[in-house]
């Protein structure tokens, strides 16, 4: 099934080095995420708290708040990054992201409906509503884009955008109809990894794991898909099945992450674009690369959101959108230079 020729040795060494550097950056970001916040805790204290030798207020903050937050950040970032890489590969569109498929809008609408109708108020209660909403929206979009067993990329994007617009407007309508809903939902809708417990993550962990494995499995086939449907077919790649499997991976990963953290934009879009200049277009490297780059971006954005308005903080979903904007502009410069 592997379509691209194996990379020559020197490149492989470079890639290993880059992957190591990426993991190093991830470790650094995790350390920053544990140490920085409304109160800064020196790294030695963090390490002591983690090993259980330190007790007290600082240790409580580290173990009780920042460890869950960092772990969730890593999981969500990795899921979103991989989902973005697969979404762009499947649609052959560098602007595709989980958002394009209506996943965030579906999750948002389901959660706001739950808040409105059932009076829920805790993020932990939202998890399965978000998953159901995300999956429902994605299925609907796939249904609209289906064409004799295959998915039509253009209708996929158009259907996703239209559905997102409709669901977003319904979400607003619900929030405007009830003050309580507005108050509960606007924070969740901003997208945040703070104040979430690990229980939420455990619930969706199977989704994320299956999604990630699926993404890694189809990565070689995505290389063939990049050459166009006909060439891929000629290379013996089952195009339609790969597209469906890829779509499934995107839904699992994105639905899982939106359930834990709320809608976080841009990680899925940006991670592949950051990794591509370093590792090239080979999806066998791109997908693992995004599994690392996604969390780096998310944790950086989250730490930044904690620092700029100390002692308060800005939701990570808002920070990623702010940071993503200039990134896209730079990307545009490259696209134009080509």
């Amino acid at each position: 099934m592997s379509a691209a020729p194996p990379a020559p040795r020197p490149a492989a060494a470079r890639h290993a080095l880059l992957l190591a550097a990426g993991l190093g950056a991830l470790a650094l970001c995790a350390a920053l995420s544990l140490a920085l916040g409304s109160r800064s805790i020196p790294l030695p204290t963090v390490i002591d708290a983690l090993s259980g030798t330190e007790h007290g207020a600082d240790a409580d903050v580290v173990v009780g708040l920042r460890v869950p937050r960092t772990v969730i950040g890593i999981a969500v970032g990795a899921a979103l990054g991989a989902a973005g890489a697969v979404a762009q590969g499947v649609t052959r569109n560098p602007l595709a992201s989980p958002t394009t498929l209506g996943i965030n809008a579906g999750a948002g609408f389901a959660v706001v409906t739950a808040i409105f109708a059932l009076g829920l108020s805790h993020p932990l209660q939202f998890v399965w509503f978000a998953v159901a909403g995300a999956a429902g929206a994605a299925l609907l979009v796939y249904g609209m884009a289906r064409r004799s067993g295959d998915l039509d990329p253009v209708r996929l994007a158009l259907g996703g955008t239209v559905l997102s617009a409709v669901l977003a407007s319904w979400t607003s309508a619900l929030m405007l109809a009830s003050r309580r809903t507005l108050d509960e939902a606007r924070f969740w809708l901003a997208g945040s990894i703070g104040g979430r417990s690990l229980d939420g993550l455990y619930q969706v962990l199977p989704l994320l794991a299956v999604g990630a494995v699926l993404a890694l499995l189809i990565a070689p086939a995505l290389n063939a898909l990049a050459l166009g449907d006909e060439t891929a077919q000629a290379l013996g790649v089952p195009v339609a099945r790969i597209r469906v499997a890829g779509g499934l991976a995107v839904v699992l990963l994105a639905a899982g992450s939106v359930a834990v953290a709320g809608p976080v934009a841009f990680i899925g879009l940006a991670a592949p674009h950051l990794v591509r200049p370093l590792l090239g277009n080979d999806h066998r490297l791109l997908v693992p690369g995004c599994l690392v780059a996604g969390p780096v971006l998310l944790l950086l954005a989250d730490v930044l959101g904690r620092l700029v308005v100390r002692p308060s903080e800005i939701e990570v979903g808002i920070v990623t959108a702010f940071l993503g904007a200039p990134l896209l502009a730079v990307l545009a410069r490259k696209a134009a230079a080509r």
Binding site: L95, R186, F187, A190, A265, F266, I314, E315, G317, I318, A321, F322, G324, A325, P326, L327, L328, A329, L331, A332, R333, A335, A336
Partner: peptide, 24 residues
């Protein structure tokens, strides 16, 4: 054209984030 679309999306994202921040 490609550049316009990308930059447009970027401008939209940045400004929408600012709106979102104010709403929150």
């Amino acid at each position: 054209v490609t550049r316009l679309v990308l930059v447009g999306l970027a401008v939209q994202a940045g400004l929408a984030a600012a709106v979102n921040l104010m709403i929150v």
